[in-house]
Design a protein around this nucleic acid. Sequence first.
RNA 1: GUGCCUGUAGCUCAAUGGCAGAGCGCCACACUGUGGAUGUGGAUGUUGUGGGUUCGAAACCCAUCAGGCACCCCA
Length: 426
Amino acid sequence: MAKNLIPPVKGTRDFYPEQMAVRTWLYNTLRQVAESFGYQEWEAPLLEILDLYAAKSGEELVKEQSYVFKDRAGNEITLRPELTPSLARLIAQKQQQLTFPLRWWSFGPFWRYESPQKGRTREFFQWNVDLLGIDSPEADAENVAVLATFFQRVGLTPNEVLILVNDRRLIEAQFDKFGVDRAIRPAVSSWIDRRGKMTPADWEAYGCEIGLSESQLASLKSMLDDKDLWKQSPEQVRFYKAIEALGLNQYVRFDPSIMRGLLYYTGTVFEAWEVGGEIRRSILGGGRYDNLLADVGGDPLPAVGFAMGDVVITLILEKYGLLRADLPVYPAPVLVTVFDGDSTLASFQLATELRRAGLKVLTYPAPDKLGKQFKYADRVGARVALILGPDELSGGQVAVKDLRTGEQRVVERGETVAVVNQILAT
RNA sequence: GUGCCUGUAGCUCAAUGGCAGAGCGCCACACUGUGGAUGUGGAUGUUGUGGGUUCGAAACCCAUCAGGCACCCCA
């Protein structure tokens, strides 16, 4: 370990070229999927005023997990912990000029001051996909279809990942039916959320603790076990029909225990989970949030959207061997060696000729021994090495070596590009 | 904030109280106009840090720092 090295900030990740290649691949993939549904890319500032999140995100997210600092003017600034409030602001600012339904997507960095562990860092990237202006189960289904298509695109099957769907309106109606006091409903929601993590006895005891009666407890238990509960919701029925029409119903399943922590969800909610259950962390979460625009000061506007973090999805892709092995971690396929101090500039000129012909070309910017330069070419994954020594220079030629076959030949300078391209094509 | 685990060479890890090592990688040479393969040789450590126990500590004890994992919450 090097001494006196300033360590990276806890919970951040360094992206060496290998990791950057993965991130760029992920970005390109989800961009293609989002664009195939007609979503447009956008971006918000990474810094926002704290008040933007104050009322609408989860309490804990704002008060304990956000990076907050005062700028030099004394304003409370937040490193954004999520994107949806920024989206609401951008929409509200131009609401009269935009054409709805509006489909926007974004991929950028977010920060949450939490304890880093598997699948969770303090600085992470998030894919956000939102559809605004339409309140229909079909809009929800289309939004979910974007991420199901993403799963399909990267090679994840319904045996590996599932999108679990619920509807808060449906559960609220059940709460009404069972006479669950409005004051304890948030606690009941998190109690439902926690079912899988506790023993049945502890879970029931906890249910009593938050104020549920014996009969409410029994009713809620049978509600959570009712796989057909969705049939009581006209919205849910239409949602699954639409998903089926989109050809993605294999990826989607009703689950009455999906509640979501964020306060602004109003209708359909969903999360994606790994089926095997080894990665015990949701891959993404989303849902309908019809009140948020009005809450930030805009005109009321229905909306649905989801967010997927890069950390967990990368874990999943790794687990199932779906990260592409052919990611471009090599700098360039062609290296122009430098024979000696006198011919360095001639080599540079040759490199420029090749680059102008569209090739990616490395030079070796010091007259080291050729053996060392070839070794370097090998290490960095170059396919072709070019040598411009005294013999070649005097004859207007270039030595071209195929580093895979070891075959080398001397060609006329004007043919160099064609010969190199020929080798690269094999 | 709480609990558990781990810190030894560039990397992965041995050494369980008795000379701090291996594999890989790195460097040099064989090969002064040619890489991968092979061979020969070589370099590398305040054993995270500070204290304590001991004739003797990488190992045992205390403290501290860092990282990982889990709870909480969430992408």
